[in-house]
Write a protein that binds this DNA or RNA. Sequence first.
DNA 1: CGGCGGTCCTGTCAGC
DNA 2: TGCTGACAGGACCGCC
Length: 265
Amino acid sequence: MPELPEVETVRQGLASWVEGRRIESFALKRADLRRLIPADLPGKAKGKTILKTERHGKTMVWRLEGGHDIAWHLGMSGSFRANAGKAPLGKHDHVEIILMDGTQIVFNDPRRFGNLTYAPKDWQGVDPLTQGFTAEALAAMTAGRKAPVKALLLDQRLIAGIGNIYASEACFLAKLRPETPSGAVKPATIKKLHAAIQKVLKDAIQSGGSSLRNHMTVDGDTGKFQHRFNVYGRTGQPCRVCKTPILKIVQAGRSTFFCPVCQAF
DNA sequence: CGGCGGTCCTGTCAGC
DNA sequence: TGCTGACAGGACCGCC
């Protein structure tokens, strides 16, 4: 589910519930997510104040008083909800946190592709909404690469935060064919792609993210950006610019959507 | 080294 | 209505 904009939306929603609050209890209902949650993590978190929430790419971080910061990855189907008081748990509720003021925070993840670990000291991949992500940096990543540019955008070791939706959407905004070998993208197009990535991510955050199946903000609202997709999931529907039907192809096992006319090679 | 396919899970939806 | 198979926003691992 969640790419950078959705994780940022969740983080913003959680911030006012958790920042500055102390953890009274931290309970794992099941620890066997995609990666096993460290057995000692609940004990380390208990009693600590959550100083600050941060985000790097698709990962949300809680800075805890005294260290042992924790990192949440929502995988494909992870979500949070917050309640002013303790509400009953349901299916796929894997982590329940109670704060000193009685607030209940629940992490739910049906597919269990998400995970919860200690935050790393160093991050792989530049977050595209930080200063480190420049057109020059993007040019350096693509130089000499044969991989299709859309596949390269999904490589979290290079850029952290772009997923399958926004990779297709960014290529559309840059008028770039997704199959183009990364190293063959012209410098002028690299600049357009750089700007397109930042624009689509920022616009999506402003719209509260994209809700396809079940992404919601902490308060249960759905995002609105899915109504503004230019290509994602719009196979056969007319391009919003030129009316040509949108095409779908599969690259490295993932669906890619594009306009064959607007996105020339 | 780099890219691709398979795999981990559950839920949903289209098609028969 | 009920079943079956395809597919889903992610990412690791092994193979070529």
